[in-house]
Design a protein around this nucleic acid. Structure first.
Lengths: 337, 337
DNA sequence: TGCCGCACTGTGAACGTTCACAGAGAATTC
DNA sequence: GAATTCTCTGTGAACGTTCACAGTGCGGCA
């Protein structure tokens, strides 16, 4: 094909080249059944010949559909982008949407300015749906979203809005139970936990699961809080060691925090797993690269992402409601417990 | 709740509400100087009042601009998404583009089907520019891109096309020199290296820098190759230890591979840094969480991303050519060397 | 035979912008 | 005082689609 730098071919050009009308070309391109085989073939040939590609702007002007979905990151972005889970989500979502020829645009909603931009973008009708990542219950974006009546789905439950915003998520609570039980079964007596932020479903539900097994009262003194960052894992571990020097196991709410905890344990001369068993959560890449390798709970993140996208596409396709999806976790024994 | 099916306000509504014409509203909105202060105020008020947001589809239909940039990942996606550098790039690019109200669309070009989708998207004129991530010289996408004559900029040089596709990148070669010199200065005598893939600028240039300091001939036997993955770092380290048991330092082309190398060294009973010094490259998050902490070379990734975006925006704004940007690296001493 | 429905096609009118143009006053120049 | 510029404004015509509508033959059926 000649590399002519001319005007992009339009549907008119295809119509002319194939000897049919605009309308027929449009129908042929959009799979309308009322197109003769002859016309269809002619259009196909003309499209190949001219290198025609539909102009989405023109199309969405009349259809009111954009073929675009926004992924909104409503976390202070540094934290989120550092999260190894995030890249899995992004990767899977990109692929799944691409299969349906839907473009994924990324937006960050860290501060008010960002948020305003997101809302403006959505209000402008530039996207058919929203994929929410790690939204907090208090996030003002959620309210604004509802006012827009645009399909929205969350990856991981949005605490306090479970019935409002559909989601797909791993079964955090059951996963935490698995780990707690595993530690108990190994004969650990003083099992502490480091939680994620309690305004996130992971933070809250993993603590709940932990308490389910060990009893809420029994663990009262054995809880420390982190924010999923490595640093916070270190701080929480120090705090626990100071408070409960004779603990013999700790369930940490994320692998990254667990990596921090491991470092502190080593620094304080505790052997892992001999003196203290450590359990993580996520089974992210880092779990295989700590020393010792981290026993953790695997979240089926790829599935979570796949299901999240599926839910969103269903809503966009006109479904009135969709069922939330909760996926099973799996304990992955390695060396730290 | 009443399903108010309210039409989105258009520029006509704003015109009516402010008592001026479409044209004046458009001018006011786009910063045309020929608008009276009275008209400007009226338009502003009407916009606020109606909640008007410009319809990008309609605008781009006439302007031929989309306000969208595509980030193309031309790596088998698993590998790329695992790369901690990637999230930095993504984060910074998102923010910088958002500041200019440009949307960022993510696309993966792993296989032929993906690539065809990307080209179709671009040929359809759905984006004003392309941000290339980790493109290889042999990538067929590059050729197709040139035929499209759409502004494109790479993050990191594209080997073999340095003069064709503008880029911003860290000074890999000088960074490698810094590390090599650092190891020499510490009295290391047998310094090996594990490279990244030699069809990437990082792989090639870091090896070049290493050779600059130690002499190409002298290190001939001391080179092993990896592919930036942790696993390949382990394999390369094993190979080196088998081949050169008395090596006393190794410069590894990425932190992730260095983490793998550290694990193998421990497994083989070598103490780090006493027996073997280990130097990494990237200063990614993992560098602080290995044991011992990794001495590495910091790439100013945020700046690289910022500059890449700047170059692209300049091209989009009509610049005919732009200068490549090469940014200085910095050695970060920690515990492994 | 006449009528109706079926399969397919072409045409005009949106969709919501921007842009080029023309025109109206006011200000400036000669 | 007329001519000229300068500022500001409104209007019609694109941009490239899809959609609704109005055909046109053609075959089947009463």
């Amino acid at each position: 094909m000649p590399v002519t730098n001319k005007r992009r071919p339009t549907i008119h050009d295809v119509a002319r080249a194939s000897g049919v009308s605009r309308g027929t070309v449009s129908r042929a391109l959009n799979g309308d059944p009322y197109v003769s085989t002859a016309a269809l073939a002619a259009v196909r040939r003309a499209v190949a010949e001219t290198g025609y590609v539909v102009n989405r702007a023109a199309r969405s002007l009349v259809t009111q559909r954009t073929g675009t979905v926004v992924m909104v990151l409503s976390e202070p972005q540094e934290k989120l982008f550092e999260d190894p889970n995030f890249s899995v989500l992004l990767r899977v979502a990109t692929r799944r949407l691409a299969q349906r020829d839907v473009a994924l645009v990324m937006m960050v909603a860290g501060d008010d300015g960002d948020r305003e931009r997101v809302v403006r973008y959505l209000r402008g009708g530039h996207a058919d749906g929203v994929l929410l990542l790690s939204a907090h219950s208090g996030d003002p974006l959620l309210g604004e979203l509802e006012g827009l009546s645009i399909p929205a789905v969350a990856c991981g439950a949005v605490l306090g809005r479970e019935g409002v915003i559909p989601y797909a998520a791993a079964d955090d609570r059951e996963g935490a139970r698995q780990m707690a039980q595993y530690l108990v079964d190994q004969g650990r007596k003083k099992i502490a936990t480091i939680t994620g932020p309690l305004d996130t479903p992971g933070g809250l539900n993993r603590l709940e699961g932990f308490c389910d097994v060990l009893g809420r009262k029994a663990v009262k003194k054995l809880i420390a809080h982190g924010d999923y960052s490595r640093h916070s894992g270190e701080a929480a571990m120090r705090e626990l060691l100071d408070r409960v020097p004779d603990l013999d196991a700790v369930f940490v709410g994320s692998d990254l925090m667990a990596a921090g905890a491991l470092a502190v344990l080593r620094e304080r001369g505790r052997r892992v797993p001999e003196d203290v068993a450590v359990g993580g959560f996520d089974d992210s890449a880092i779990a295989g690269s700590t020393h010792p390798k981290l026993t953790t709970v695997r979240q089926p993140l790829e599935q979570v992402a796949t299901e999240t996208v599926r839910l969103l596409l269903e809503l966009i396709d006109g479904a009135d409601t969709v069922e939330n999806v909760v996926l099973a976790t799996e304990l992955v024994p390695r060396d730290s417990a």
